[in-house]
Structure formats: structure tokens, C-alpha cells
Amino acid sequence: MNTRTVDTPAAAPRVLLLPGWQNSGPGHWQTVWETLHGDLRVEQHDWMRPLRGDWSARLEEEVLAAPGPVVFAAHSLGCILVAAWAAHSRNTHKVRGALLVAPGDLEREDLHQLIPGWAPIVRQPLPFPALLIAANDDPYCDAARSRQMAADWGARFVDAGRGGHLNAESGLGDWPEGRQLLNDLSKDTH
């Protein structure tokens, strides 16, 4: 009996969309990607009063439910969620990479008051490749703080120039540049 092994390509990772506080509305690039590319939005139980433990548990459920590897496309509070989840999950090996877009500075007093329970931000290195992209005029996070988060997490940093919070109001539409960064990251194997 002659048996041959056939090399099959590794399964394409499932893209998990991780919106921030109040979810991502119809004009947001995450919503557009969900429609265009069939990405899976991690639905949270309470978008208005986010609890770090609840949000981490939901993310863990979706990572475990994925049949193969995953890649994260996180925005704002979703970036902070990735760091918090990675610090305690035993399933980080399933994550091929994380695109972290416009993290919010939850240690800033005004944001800490709006969204309590998320400070201090987890700052340990992520156990998977990550790229953090942020604008230098984001009203929710100073550019220097974004760069510091990227350094702390071991993420490559991309300066988006002027673009605000890189959300629907930024006019990104389907944001092909962001999608290309995600595609490149999901192919990353280190």
C-alpha cells in the first residue's frame, strides 16, 4: 500500500473584531470589514458599561470556539482588552497576531471616570506578533502614550498621521491600508 502525505496550507486565521466602548457603528471600518470579509465581531453583553472580566471571558469563549488560529482586529478599548486577556489566557497560542488600532488611554483621569475598572492598563509583552497603529491627533490617547503601549506590548508601531480616533468619523471607509496590515500580520509566523 502506497501512502503519500500531502502538504496542505495552514488554515487561514479567523478574524475576530474587537470593538471598543459603545461598539462600532455602521460607518466604522470594523463593521465594514464584518460585511465585506465575513469577520466575526466579538459581541459583548454590555457595550455601555464594560467590565474587564466579562469582556475577557467573552473573548476567551470566541477564541476557544474558533476551529483554528485567530487574528485580532481591535479598536480603542478592544486593544486594552487584548492585553488584559493575553495576561491570563492559556489559549494565546491560538492567536496568530493582533492589529491594535487607536488604543484609548484608560489611565487618563477623564476616561478612567467614564470607563472604570480598566486601569492600570496591562503592560506586559504580548505572546504573539502585534502591530499598533495610532494617529498623532487621537483625542483619546496622546501619541507618546500610544508609542509607549506599543513598546510595552512588544508591538510594531505605525504612525497614522492625522486621523483622530481612526473610527467612522475619520472617514476610513473599508480602510484598505488597515486590511493590508492585518493580512500581512496574519501571515506572520514568528
Rank of each mutant, 00 (worst) to 15 (best):
T5G: 12
E169A: 12
W85G: 01
P103C: 08
R52S: 06
P19Y: 08
N2Q: 13
T189R: 12
A86K: 01
S186L: 05
W55P: 00
G38D: 03
H45F: 12
A134G: 07
C79V: 00
T189C: 12
D54Q: 12
R162I: 13
N183S: 15
A86N: 00
T31Q: 10
E34K: 05
P125W: 06
D159A: 04
W153V: 03
L182V: 06
V101P: 00
D152H: 07
L40I: 15
Q148G: 11
A10F: 10
E43R: 15
N91G: 09
Q44M: 14
R147P: 06
Q124G: 14
M1R: 09
W85M: 02
R90S: 13
V95H: 02
P13C: 03
N136D: 09
H28D: 00
L111V: 07
A135P: 02
A135L: 00
E169L: 09
R108A: 12
D174S: 15
G171S: 05
P9K: 09
H37Y: 09
P120V: 05
Y140V: 04
L181A: 13
L185C: 11
P125R: 06
S56F: 03
H165W: 01
N136M: 02
H165V: 05
D39H: 14
R58V: 10
H75W: 09
H190N: 15
K187R: 14
G171F: 02
S89C: 06
T8M: 14
N2Y: 13
D188W: 12
Q30M: 12
D110T: 09
D138H: 01
T3R: 14
L17I: 10
V70P: 02
A66D: 10
L166I: 08
Q113R: 13
S186F: 04
L111E: 10
L166P: 03
R4N: 15
G164E: 05
R52P: 02
P50C: 03
Q148M: 14
G178T: 01
H37T: 04
L99P: 02
H165G: 03
W33N: 04
P116W: 08
G161Y: 03
L172Y: 01
G173E: 11
G25F: 06
